[in-house]
Design a binder for these strands. Structure first.
Length: 601
DNA sequence: AGAAGGTGTCATGTG
DNA sequence: AACACATGACACCTT
């Protein structure tokens, strides 16, 4: 678990690099494609992009390597499972084993009974054991003040270890209790209940319970009124092993924000101690710097931060999603994909009540309008199979506050707020920042989806890799149906986007070419007109010369008497063989009819 | 408020 | 038949 934290921290830096890089390369000047200067810049950008791509791929490989390093091969199943912390039993979050189901462990009821015996509490209005805040959390918070009502939680000293004045028996019982998943589950439910009672006071009303509990297998009302109808094992299976996620920092933060009477320290430390042994806490304390930003008031207890808790969720272990996500199908929002997606075709009609999976573009647009919500929504759906609305919101909230590195860096919404300022591109050479922002927004949408589905590739890789490389990349990672659909959609849209840009570019080039042709044709026309005029002038001159030459020839002709021929009475005609005849004009028709009266000169 | 232009996306055609 | 690419049409956004 610690090692995973270290990874998170290391990833944070890498993600920071990624996001800065993205902000750089996305400054491409699409619309300046016809501007030669901009083309040059574009070319430079492309080269930079290629370099960054190599760098990024290297980082991805490093990341995968690091991830594998954190896993160990389960020889029985052939699966990679997280290495257990040193000295701590492996808690497989995917296949939760309940100590209560083993022979030597205390049963859940026994633990509760022990709690009730040790710290007698006043009867609360609900018979629910799990939801009984006083019965569970108060003793844990402060055993020295047994029976402290929830409202007084904020005043109780934080309890990170079993009470000092406990008897050895009690201490032993405490240790066992703290290790019980059921108890953790209870606390999760308690947290949830606290959220409901504080943030959503009317949550017990049916209309509030109605919403999206996509994978919650039972009636929400039943859950609230009679949680013991479901066995702990069922309960735990319901959450698909993502127990830590249930107590995400977001929910904690939400509690803190919306119900000041609750002491965040209490929540933080209890959960901290439950999930982290003391030594672990000490080691991991300095790993996450974000925590102090999110919850400054508990930053003095570095081991527990919202980020820490969040990091307990299977955020990075996308491989785990292979199994978790197989039944989940968000709308890939492509015509093809959505048609093939049974859930998308009839959202809300699934037996799982998976309407929240029927994502459409409009849904995503709504999310776009709700900065921070997309990530969590997806995370809720794909890392937690059970998420009441308030938990959604709580996690959404924390996604903004105690957000893990990836979310902060990849969440385009937050870039959208003012990407230029963040990336320091105020002096960007490209004037049309608005267009760029819009483009980023579009891109970010796919990035968000990809991240939500924990797709282990970048959008750029998905779109830009050659077919062979892309197929090879896909074959290296076993993706579930939803991930495949999304990857296909991203690639299709990305390719089509590029194709559309090329198409428009060609269209513009054609227009430019046609305009150029038109200009040259006009020039040609002008030239030909000038030539025609010149030829006409020349022809006129030649006719004049011919006429004067004709008269000159005529004047040299003499008859037998030595007198000249009159041009009005005679004319010179040339026969087909080249001989020239002097033809009397008056006899012209006659000669033609007689056919032989012409005489050579 | 509405026109104009840019862009992403989808559906469909084409090779 | 499957695939990638091209392109018209549309919606949305910005100016």
């Amino acid at each position: 678990m610690i090692e995973m934290e270290v990874m998170h921290s290391g990833h944070q830096d890498m993600e920071l690099i990624d996001i800065l890089w993205k902000q750089d390369i996305d400054l491409g000047a699409r619309r300046e494609v016809f501007d030669y200067n901009h083309r040059q810049k574009e070319h430079e950008l492309r080269r930079q992009r290629e370099l960054e791509e190599e760098k990024r791929q290297h980082l991805v490989r490093e990341r995968e390597k690091a991830l594998l390093a954190q896993l160990q091969l389960d020889e029985e199943t052939g699966e990679y499972i997280p290495r257990p912390p040193a000295g701590a039993p492996l808690e497989d979050t995917q296949n939760v084993n309940f100590p209560g189901e083993t022979d030597d462990a205390m049963s859940f009821d026994e633990c509760l009974q022990l709690l009730a015996d040790t710290f007698p509490v006043e009867e609360t209005e609900t018979a629910s054991v799990c939801l009984d805040t006083a019965a569970v959390s108060a003793p844990m918070m402060s055993p020295e003040q047994p029976g402290l009502p929830p409202a007084a939680l904020s005043t109780g000293p934080p309890l990170a270890t079993p009470p000092e004045r406990m008897s050895p028996d009690l201490e032993q019982a405490w240790m066992e209790l703290l290790s019980l998943p059921e108890l953790q589950q209870c606390l999760s439910m308690q947290m949830e209940d606290t959220l409901e009672t504080t943030t959503y006071p009317l949550s017990n009303s049916p209309e509030v319970q109605n919403p999206n509990y996509p994978f919650y297998p039972m009636n929400a009302t039943d859950r609230l009124t009679n949680p013991l109808n479901v066995s702990p094992a069922q309960f735990m299976n319901t959450f698909d092993g993502s127990l830590p996620s249930l107590v995400s920092p977001d929910s904690l933060h939400q509690v803190k924000e919306n119900s000041p009477q609750l002491n965040a320290k209490f929540n933080a430390e209890i959960f901290c101690d439950m999930f982290y042994p003391n030594d672990v806490l000490d080691e991991s304390g300095g790993l996450e710097g974000n925590g102090s930003n999110a919850m400054p008031d508990i930053s003095n207890k570095p081991p527990f931060t919202p980020v820490d808790l969040y990091s307990l969720s299977p955020d990075d272990a996308f491989d785990r999603e292979k199994t978790n996500l197989t039944a989940e199908r968000p709308d890939s929002d492509s015509g093809i994909s959505s048609n093939t997606s049974p859930n998308a075709s009839s959202p809300g009609k699934s037996s799982h009540g998976d309407e929240s999976f029927g994502f459409s573009d409009s849904d995503m647009e709504e999310m776009d309008d709700n900065p921070g919500s997309v990530e969590s929504d997806y995370s809720d759906m794909f890392s937690l199979n059970f998420q009441p609305d308030h938990l959604h919101q709580a996690i959404s909230l924390s996604a903004r506050i105690g957000q893990p590195q990836q979310q902060q860096e990849k969440n385009p919404k937050e870039h959208k707020t003012d990407p230029d300022e963040e990336s320091g591109h105020n002096s960007s050479p490209f004037a049309k920042d608005k267009q760029k922002k819009r483009s980023e927004k579009r891109l970010s949408r796919d990035e968000q989806r990809a991240k939500a589905l924990k797709i282990p590739f970048t959008v750029d890789m998905i779109i830009n890799l050659p077919v062979d490389d892309f197929n090879e990349m896909m074959s290296k990672h076993q993706l579930n149906e939803a991930q495949l659909a999304l990857v296909r959609d991203i690639r299709r849209r990305g390719k089509n986007k590029v194709a559309a840009q090329n198409c428009r570019k060609r269209k513009m080039e054609n227009i430019v070419g046609l305009e150029s042709n038109l200009d040259s044709l006009k020039e040609e026309k002008e030239r030909l007109l000038g030539e025609k005029s010149q030829n006409a002038t020349s022809l006129k001159e030649m006719k004049k010369q011919l006429n004067s030459l004709y008269l000159e020839v005529f004047s040299t002709l003499r008859d037998e008497k030595g007198s000249s021929y009159s041009p009005s009475d005679y004319s010179l005609q040339q026969s087909t063989d080249g001989s020239v005849f002097l033809v009397p004009r008056v006899k012209k028709t006659f000669l033609k009819s007689e056919d032989n009266l012409l005489s050579p000169l």
